[in-house]
């Protein structure tokens, strides 16, 4: 199991539920396009239909078929994405991470400002900040708690593509070319990749 690359995404309930799910799907689809075995799913114990509640979404990428598909959570994430920077105060977002992990934050603040709120920041080898809201338009934002459903007509139309684009700096398991190819918001994915502030620690 150790060679399965785990990504955990933190989102805010209802307002980011769908975008968070889309992020897992475009990450998985892009790795799938690169010939990997993938899994993308939402945490089932979280409560997606309460506004603002922290939610977890997961991706797994592997060179071999993923055997244990039914576990409820990623226990050992190497990459963590937080879709809203205030989540750093509410939870141990690096839960389960080993030393050398990567954090991607949606924030207009600088990496140093964010790191102040992360007591276990020595686990990180890299932090990536990107202001996805700037790239983000309200168009297509779905306030419907879309539990379990997928908007298949336009996966990755909003900020998910921007953040996933930025996350490409954090791992070889995600390539920006494939990510752009599978996202509906192609400009956003590119912009996220280009405008990301990357800080090695």
């Amino acid at each position: 199991m150790s060679d399965v690359y785990e990504i955990t995404i933190w989102a805010r309930g209802v307002v980011q539920d769908m975008e968070g799910r889309h992020m897992t799907l475009i990450m998985a689809s892009s790795a799938d396009k690169d010939g990997k075995f993938v899994q993308a799913w939402d945490d089932y114990a979280d409560l997606p239909d309460r506004v603002g509640v922290p939610l977890r979404k997961y991706v797994r990428i592997s060179d071999e078929e993923i055997e244990m598909r039914y576990e409820y959570e990623n226990k050992n994430p190497s990459l963590v994405v937080i879709m809203d920077d205030t989540i750093v105060k509410g939870l141990n977002i690096l839960w389960g991470m080993d030393k050398g992990g990567v954090l991607v934050v949606n924030s207009k603040r600088s990496p140093d400002e964010i790191l102040k709120f992360i007591p276990n920041k020595d686990l990180l080898s890299k932090i990536i900040c990107v202001d996805a809201e700037e790239e983000f338009s309200m168009e297509g934002l779905d306030f419907m708690g879309s539990e379990g459903g997928v908007e298949v007509s336009a996966v990755g139309a909003g900020i998910s593509a921007v953040l996933a684009g930025a996350a490409c700096h954090g791992t070889d398991n995600l390539t920006i070319d494939s990510l752009v190819a599978v996202s509906a918001n192609k400009e956003g994915a590119k912009a996220g990749y280009e405008s990301a502030v990357v800080k090695d620690l």
Partner: peptide, 17 residues
């Protein structure tokens, strides 16, 4: 009711669209 809600949500979207 969870988890069926997902089916209902998806269908309501398909009808609305």
């Amino acid at each position: 009711i969870r988890p069926y809600t997902g089916i209902m949500m998806e269908l309501s979207k398909l009808v609305a669209n």
